[in-house]
Amino acid sequence: MMIFGGVGFDALSLEAVQRACAALFVFALFVEISGCVQTEPYRLTAAAESQGICDPDEYGTVQSACEKYVRERATHYDLLFAEFDDQGWANNCRKRTIPS
């Protein structure tokens, strides 16, 4: 019997612990691989194309049409978004226009 951290393990239970660790590793690998997604920009409507005022409601939610705008215009603020890919480059920077 081996003593590990004050708890006794025989050879059979040590193998069970090693199998459990291997299963946990495979599960963690599966979760990490399944969590991979493509890096696509979320806000696709260019600032020049975004029209209208996107005032939030009483809960702070804007209209669904405003969710894809690069520039969110409201009565009391203008909110601009910049998105970057996984390497730190601006997403679709050549396609965007500078808002006026």
Rank of each mutant, 00 (worst) to 15 (best):
M2C: 11
M2P: 04
I3S: 14
F4A: 03
F4K: 12
G5W: 05
G5I: 01
G5N: 15
G6P: 03
V7G: 01
V7N: 11
G8E: 07
F9A: 00
F9G: 01
D10S: 05
D10K: 06
D10A: 00
A11Y: 03
L12D: 13
L12Y: 10
S13Y: 09
S13C: 02
L14H: 04
E15L: 02
E15A: 05
E15V: 08
A16R: 02
Q18N: 00
R19L: 13
A20Q: 14
A20P: 00
A23R: 10
L24W: 04
L24S: 05
F25L: 05
V26R: 11
V26P: 01
F27Y: 12
F27V: 10
F27P: 00
A28R: 05
A28M: 13
F30A: 10
V31T: 07
V31R: 07
V31W: 04
I33Q: 11
I33W: 06
I33S: 12
S34D: 11
S34M: 04
G35K: 14
G35F: 06
G35Y: 00
V37R: 03
V37I: 07
Q38C: 03
E40W: 06
E40N: 06
R43P: 07
R43C: 02
R43I: 02
R43A: 10
T45W: 01
T45V: 15
T45M: 02
A46P: 07
A46N: 15
A46Q: 12
A47G: 00
A47V: 04
E49L: 03
I53L: 15
I53Y: 09
I53S: 13
I53Q: 14
D55P: 02
D55Q: 14
G60H: 00
V62E: 01
V62D: 01
Q63I: 10
Q63A: 15
Q63Y: 14
Q63R: 15
C66W: 01
C66Y: 07
K68W: 04
V70P: 00
R71P: 06
R71H: 05
R71W: 14
E72T: 10
E72L: 15
E72K: 03
R73H: 10
A74L: 05
T75G: 07
H76T: 14
Y77G: 02
D78Q: 06
D78L: 11
F81P: 06
A82M: 12
A82Y: 02
A82S: 09
D85S: 09
D85E: 02
D85K: 00
D86R: 15
D86S: 13
D86N: 11
D86G: 06
Q87W: 09
Q87L: 09
G88R: 00
W89T: 12
N91K: 07
C93R: 14
K95D: 05
R96Y: 06
R96D: 10
R96V: 07
T97A: 06
I98R: 13
I98T: 06
P99E: 01
S100I: 09
